[in-house]
Amino acid sequence: MENNTSLYERLGGIKGIEAIADDIVELHMINPHIKARFLPLKDNPQHFSEVRKHLIHFLAAGSGGPEAYTGKDMTTAHKGMNISNGEYMDAIDDIMKALNKNNIDEQTQKDVLYIAYSLKASMLHV
């Protein structure tokens, strides 16, 4: 039997996505390979709050939720960052750890991974 539950619902709706987003950011802040990109956010609480909101809305809108994403497209948001493939993979690892921590099932994790990989080209070396 096919599961007709939306990805948004499988991620726990907005509350689940907020928890996952917070865990992703926390993991990025301690990941030795990418933390230098994220730690400066702690010095600017207003910018940190904006980035957090955009991440939550990006995940919510991208998974079928009613929230609107009003941030930049991925290419524009990552322009000039020169993200390496290794850094991208470290970020993906953090996302998967956050999904595991929040007890997201294997198929939903695969669905999120598929989406993350589909965005790769718009984020690397732009």
Rank of each mutant, 00 (worst) to 15 (best):
Gly12Val: 09
Asn44Arg: 09
Glu18Ser: 07
Leu55Ser: 05
Lys97Leu: 11
Ser63Arg: 05
Lys97Ala: 11
Lys97Arg: 10
Val112Arg: 01
Glu2Thr: 13
Tyr69His: 03
Ile95Pro: 03
Thr70Pro: 02
Lys110Ile: 03
Tyr8Trp: 09
Leu41Thr: 01
Glu87Phe: 09
Tyr88Leu: 07
Ile92Val: 15
Glu67Leu: 14
Pro32Arg: 04
Met96Cys: 02
Pro66Asp: 08
Asp23Ala: 13
Ala116Leu: 14
Ile83His: 00
Asp90Leu: 03
Asp23Pro: 10
Glu87Gly: 12
Lys101Cys: 00
Asp111Lys: 09
Met74Tyr: 02
Lys42Gln: 13
Glu87Leu: 00
Ile20Met: 08
Pro32Ala: 02
Gln107Lys: 14
Leu99Val: 07
Lys120Tyr: 11
Ser49His: 08
Ala21Cys: 07
Lys79Asp: 12
Ser122His: 12
Lys72Gln: 15
Glu87Pro: 10
Asp43Thr: 06
Asp73Cys: 00
His125Ser: 14
Glu50Met: 12
Ala98Pro: 05
Lys101Leu: 12
Gln109Glu: 11
Asn82Arg: 12
Tyr114Ala: 13
Asn4Thr: 12
Asn100Asp: 15
Ile34Ser: 01
Glu9Lys: 15
Glu2Val: 14
Thr76Met: 09
His125Val: 10
Tyr117Ala: 01
Glu9His: 08
Leu41Gln: 00
